[in-house]
Design a protein around this nucleic acid. Structure first.
Lengths: 339, 339
DNA sequence: CTGAAAGCGCTAACAC
DNA sequence: GTGTTAGCGCTTTCAG
């Protein structure tokens, strides 16, 4: 009972001021569920203005059983792809009167668990979730009965709602773009091997090479973290051996880290090493050289994710989105910039 | 009364199971405010485990008057500087048991207002706020009595709590670094002129030029939005006239957009045009060329901001932080990369 | 050390 | 069309 705010104006004050009952005040504020005479309605609105009344969202949430809040659990908001996704999700959610609780796990599995529990306690109306690793805490969420949508590939056996693009196909297409350039030695910089999305992306790469009848060399798989630093280090390792002619980086940060390492050795992209990457953002477009990249339809996916939470009925739904391969300068397609 | 979740286990169930009163269950969960005998405590804990009880955060918030939630209002989470700030804020807040409600205004003033109202209704324990423009909705927040900290420069007359770096000094130092290189023609790409932080940054630039006894040419102020696109367009405008020898971009996105425009014309950085920028992130470090930039101590600032909310007592406090000028390749200091 | 009970502010049946 | 009132699940005072 330690109400920190001095003395809040409550609905009772408004009712008193307007000379009506508290119920009517509610009806006015919520436009229902019962009709209100226009005259009364005006009196209430005036009273609200006069008293400076602000409905208490918490009390409303307790009484109505809905918090108008979705939780967003992601590995790290500082990742440009995730922040662009978070941006779109928030915009879309807000259109539906919902706000997002930000659960940034800081790439830490333990923290992720704490956040999920925390947001669940807060009675979020739904959860949007990208896990830091391949072992998402699905059961925990399911046990709570909270609507939730994975923003990531998950084990199909788990039978949960998810939105995603076919990452294997996207990786295939990205790599095929390189093979169509005629490049034969094509390495991959990928994420931790135990992660499903890493596996998908490697599969796509592998298949594209096989389709082009190119050898798949295990030593050309450079596994690292999904960070700039990771891409940088993977490239450094790569530079110790024979240089591939082309490179598929499985996220944008890795590609940028890799570019940095290459440029420090004076290796030109795309002239000496061509590059395509996965999950590019506007950052890829503006980079010099601009990156040829797989782009997910973030806005449409956000819209779908919010809709799925909204129309939740307990039966898992999988929505797969098409992706685009945006051509930049890094693959060698475009006329190179004057240097 | 449309409780969406089937039938929640409540404290009463736990009390019944443990053979105690509901009050004791509270005492156990909250470790207070009254002591509980160890034996009873165990019975309660067992009952909690057995029933799978989860405290309802909303009910707790209503009863206790604290939501354990802070609101974060920012122009756009997709801005790398802001997303790194959001990341640090969330990490720090979580250490204090608080979670952040994300209010991404989408660079829209109207939306910003809606978000503030929305989060205020939700009884956030505090608000962290960077406005999209120079007219923050201060009175609105103050009227609510909610603790709040501006994450931006505001009109000193407003008398609000804020954390910031001295942007004028930072801009001065960044520009001085260019004058010390011996560059004489130094342009500035800045944000909308009506914004205070733009004005501060312009002032710093101006003073640095004056200190170096260099002429300040009004036509070398290129005002645009704080985006990549803005930086790109400003650079294009600049390219229509005489090219300056050096350039101060007042945020990282503008610098990147500008770099793009320059490279499309085959203009080399730093050989032909040197560049420094404001509010760089790790992105500046990895860029090719790496950007010499002013770096704010984001983590320390986040820590301070959360502390200020926590220890809020109504009296405005201004905390100013020192900044770093991180030297990269874009200013011409470092040995240029082999190209 | 424990229990009973009065709220917190609002929603929405149910009465009139 | 409007008023009354029983909850929502929890915190915390006050008695014992």
């Amino acid at each position: 009972m330690l109400n920190q705010h001095p003395r809040r104006v409550t609905r009772a004050d408004v009712a008193r001021e307007a000379g009506t009952s508290v119920a009517v005040v509610s009806y006015v504020i919520n436009n229902g569920p019962r009709p209100v005479a226009e005259a009364t309605r005006q009196r209430v609105l005036d009273a609200i203005k006069k008293t400076g009344y602000r409905p208490n969202g918490i009390a409303r949430a307790l009484a109505s059983g809905t918090t108008r809040t979705y939780g967003l659990i992601i590995p790290n908001i500082a990742n440009p792809f995730l922040s662009s996704m978070a941006h779109s999700l928030q915009q879309e959610a807000f259109e539906h009167g919902q706000v997002l609780l930000l659960g940034d796990a800081g790439d830490n599995r333990q923290r992720e668990l704490e956040l999920i529990n925390n947001l669940l306690h807060r009675q979020v109306d739904g959860l949007l979730y990208t896990s830091v690793d391949r072992h998402p805490y699905i059961e925990l969420i399911q046990a709570s009965g909270t609507p939730f949508v994975m923003l990531d590939r998950v084990d199909p056996a788990l039978n949960v709602s998810a939105i995603r693009v076919d990452e294997r196909a996207a990786a295939f297409q990205a790599t095929r773009h390189l093979t169509e350039h005629g490049y034969r030695d094509i390495a991959i910089i990928c994420g931790p091997r135990e992660m499903l999305n890493t596996q998908d992306r490697i599969s796509g790469w592998r298949e594209a090479l096989q389709t082009a009848r190119l050898p798949v060399k295990e030593e050309w798989i450079f596994s690292t973290t999904y960070t700039r630093e990771g891409g940088y280090q993977a490239a450094c390792r790569m530079l110790e051996g024979t240089l591939p002619r082309a490179l598929f980086a499985t996220n944008e940060l890795q590609a940028l880290g890799c570019l940095r390492a290459l440029s420090e050795r004076g290796i030109k992209v795309p002239e000496e090493v061509a590059l395509v990457c996965f999950n590019g953002t506007v950052e890829s477009e503006f980079n010099v050289p601009s990156l040829t990249h797989v782009r997910q339809p973030v806005k449409a996916m956000a819209k779908a994710a919010i809709e799925m939470l909204k129309n939740w009925n307990g039966t898992p739904e999988l929505r797969e989105f098409s992706f685009d391969l945006l051509i930049g300068e890094s693959c060698g397609c475009c006329p190179t910039l004057i240097k």
